[in-house]
Amino acid sequence: MPTVSMKVNGVDVSGDVEARTLLVQFLRETLDMTGTHVGCDTSQCGACCVLMNGDSVKSCSVLAVQAEGAEITTIEGLANGDELHPMQDAFRQNHGLQCGFCTPGMVISAIDLVSKNPKPTEKEVREWLEGNLCRCTGYHNIVKAIQAGAQAMGG
């Protein structure tokens, strides 16, 4: 079995995995980091989004071995101790989550958006979320949260 090494939330990790192991399986099953979720099998729901070298990717569509040497940031790596990341806090303040299952992917995707577009318009946020499905909120408050989070992040 191949050995794979990467940095997850700033910590060097490695593990022996089958080549067919997905990055999300490596995170959830090998590293027991269950904050990243799986909601579909056709790469559409986005619940599994993580940052890979700074860009959001769907960890259900990346092989663990493809992430060799990469820097991965998951939802568990955003808060500073008890202090939420501004985007996390914006989701809380704006009621941008209900059941919470899509939330890790939404927050990660939002952070990627703001890193590329610090002041996204409502339309830009909605278009960016093409790859993130939420069944609870109707997106209204997610969009609000992301715009507020962008502002809090300094945009």
């Binding site: 790469s43 559409q44 986005g46 989004c49 890979m52 860009d55 959001s56 990717v57 769907k58 569509s61 990346v62 995707s109 990627d112 958006l113 960016w128 093409e130 790859g131 993130n132």
Partner: peptide, 9 residues
């Protein structure tokens, strides 16, 4: 094409 995450890969 696709969505932001697809475009990133």
């Amino acid at each position: 094409i696709g969505d932001a995450q697809v475009r990133n890969r």
